[in-house]
Design a protein around this nucleic acid. Structure first.
Lengths: 123, 123
DNA sequence: TTGGTCTTCAACCAAGTGGTTGACAACGGC
DNA sequence: GCCGTTGTCAACCACTTGGTTGAAGACCAA
């Protein structure tokens, strides 16, 4: 039920196994078997993951005899990056405006309200 | 079953309604009701969407009497951007190396061979 | 042709997701 | 206190998803 490509791309990357595969493919093309090797799941499951990635436009496959080497398509990343940057920037601008307002308030002797940051982890 | 934050963030944005809400919040904080207004779904459904966004760390909520104004947290976007840039860059580099290889091959008048290297190739 | 390898397709299953409705908690206004 | 407003929680439903196994397609080698 995921109609647009942006949704498909985000959904495809919302899975650690698939992000792992993208990381692997960023180092060079690989066959389905090579991609399946590190994981404890069936080749069929990996084949399904690859289908999700190709449907999202993140991966393409060519033919090489029985093999179907996978290739990472870098362009689609731009789609995400553009979307993210659009709203990150706007939020950042608002954040900075807020900072300016707060500085002004501080200048008038008002206290500064608390802020709540986030922690992060990479995959 | 989405354990790490990066997965939660990608999953949260893999939905057009939630991306819409992020777009709305990028322009300024909004209450649950205000966020629900443009959509043809129940407030409860919107409340669930907001829960997904907050669990991903994309949104925070404060209290204001009965209202729970939502605020977009821009920092989490960096988590995504970093991940994306890491692999986009690698893929792009490989792409450019491949271009160089192809140019060289063209220079020698050789036909382009099929390649399915194991990782670390393209040297 | 026969057999082995690589990959996908089909059917199935448990768990997760996005939606619904109904109940209820929390708060301000009267 | 009582009512209206705002939002969440709980239970439920249809559909999707990530996994499985078994069968089959596509190809090479002998």
């Amino acid at each position: 039920m995921v109609h647009d490509q942006l949704s498909r791309v985000f959904a495809a990357l919302a899975d650690t196994t698939r992000r792992d595969m993208v990381a692997r493919l960023a180092m060079g093309d690989a066959t389905v078997g090579e991609l399946a090797d590190p994981y404890d799941v069936s080749v069929q499951a990996v084949s399904k993951h690859i289908k999700v990635l190709t449907d999202a436009g993140l991966v393409s496959q060519r033919r090489d005899a029985q093999r179907r080497p996978c290739h990472l398509e870098a362009e689609v990343f731009d789609l995400m990056t553009k979307w993210i940057e659009l709203y990150r920037q706007r939020a950042q601008e608002r954040f900075e405006r807020l900072d300016a307002v707060l500085a002004e308030i501080r200048g008038n002797g008002e206290p500064t309200p608390a802020r709540h940051p986030q922690q992060g982890a990479a995959s």
